[in-house]
Nucleic acid binder design. Structure first.
Lengths: 140, 140
DNA sequence: CTGCACCTTCCCACAATGGGAAGGTCAACA
DNA sequence: TGTTGACCTTCCCATTGTGGGAAGGTGCAG
């Protein structure tokens, strides 16, 4: 089947399918005489695997590792579990950070009257030097 | 003061200060005879404002809007509050998504025995077509 | 044969940030 | 005085995923 059909069946855009192939996440697709990529049901299954793991927030690098584990019939399930748990821990850390930020923001918003008047505790507070312990955390 | 001092006092890297200036988030800094940027206490206050709003997860675009509201003495506080609340709602949405994903992942991890054996329900499950209602949500 | 929908590759853009090269400047110290 | 090292300057490149679009080939339906 053409890349368009494969895209439709998996929810992965044609653009991304080509990109995944170009970076080596996926093996080179079979080609037909006219140069069009040709996808089998097997290929579609792999794309669905990628789609699903991406939906769960795994990075392409992690997807790649999971894919390798998936196709390696002899790997121990321990590795898979470790990957999943690392990812869960990461999500937990990010959620803790977000909770703290939301708490601050809610407090700020609560004290802002939000009307025609121009004095606004939110802005006053934002202008202060940063809170102790605030970190340069990169969200991904 | 030099950009290095300004960076140290605000926690914004010199690289980023120059970048913020280049994209127009900050006005062009004053220059000394030798071409070095020269920062006043006022400038440092603005940088601290930026730093703090960034820490709270506002995008540069949102920071830009907040900065404009901050320096416009006549703006109604309603606008600021709306921006903050939009941001809070966005964080809440993302946290809901993350919670759902974590629930799925925890269930998967729980059923994976995680030992030497190779059969692994995580991978089996990931290989299935995506769950109904799964969306292509962009995290930022 | 024409038109349209598809495919191909290639380059550009985004958000924010860091890395580093190549070169100018300044202060301190021998 | 000269050198050294810590600054500063601009400029380009990489990152992570994704989309947009150009320029050109293909295939099918009317």
């Amino acid at each position: 089947m053409n890349i368009g059909q494969a895209s439709e069946q998996t929810g992965v855009s044609a653009k991304m399918i080509r990109y995944y192939e170009s970076i080596g996440l996926l093996p080179s697709a079979a080609r037909r005489a006219n140069g069009y990529r040709d996808y089998s049901e097997q290929d579609v299954a792999v794309l669905q695997f990628v789609r699903r793991t991406r939906d769960l927030g795994f990075s392409l690098e992690e997807v790649s590792a999971l894919l390798a584990l998936w196709t390696d019939k002899k790997r121990p399930s321990r590795e898979v579990k470790r990957l999943a748990e690392t990812h869960i821990a990461d999500l937990e850390r990010r959620m803790r950070e977000m909770r703290a930020v939301m708490k601050t923001l809610r407090q700020l918003a609560q004290h802002c009257h939000g009307d025609e008047r121009s004095d606004c505790p939110i802005l006053d507070d934002l202008a202060k030097p940063r809170a102790p312990g605030a970190k340069r955390t990169r969200r991904h």
